[in-house]
Simulated scan of single mutants.
Amino acid sequence: MATKKTKSTVATITGGATALAATWVAHKAVGTAWKAILGHEPPDAEDEGDARFVEVAVAAVITGAVVALVRVLATRGTAKFANRVDEGRLSVRG
């Protein structure tokens, strides 16, 4: 029977924190780019302003795509880091 390799606690905590931070940074970057290009903040679901549906949809698609891509890249990078830690090639002192 093959043994299933489990992630260490360090990898789990690091992965979660990295994904959260990357998501926050991506969301802020999209907001900043949107404001620089269009001159105003991207519309939010809670906004009761006069944002057109097309603008809301485009903002949602761009934000969702960028956040998803950044989360995947952050998760993969963290997984590589965790593998190095688990294999003993990198020591973590705590």
Rank of each mutant, 00 (worst) to 15 (best):
P42L: 02
E41N: 09
W34A: 07
G31D: 08
L20G: 15
H27K: 11
D47S: 08
T18K: 10
A36L: 13
W34D: 06
D47W: 01
T32F: 13
E46H: 02
G39V: 10
K35I: 06
V25K: 05
K35T: 14
A26Y: 01
P43L: 00
D47Y: 00
I37F: 11
T23S: 14
W24P: 02
V30Q: 03
P42F: 00
A36G: 10
A33P: 02
T32E: 14
T32S: 15
G39D: 09
G39F: 04
V25D: 04
A33F: 14
W24S: 14
A22C: 08
A26C: 07
A21E: 12
G31E: 03
T32N: 13
A29T: 09
A22S: 11
H27N: 15
A45F: 07
A21W: 06
A36R: 09
G31W: 00
A36H: 08
T32A: 15
W34M: 06
A45M: 08
T32V: 14
I37D: 10
A33Y: 07
T18Y: 08
V30N: 03
A45Q: 11
D47L: 01
E41W: 01
A33H: 07
A36Y: 11
D47G: 06
V30H: 04
W24F: 15
H40L: 07
A26T: 03
A22N: 06
W24Q: 15
P43A: 04
E46A: 10
A29R: 02
T23C: 12
L20R: 04
V25F: 12
D44A: 08
L38V: 10
A21F: 12
L20K: 07
W24D: 13
W34Y: 14
W34V: 04
L20Q: 06
L38W: 11
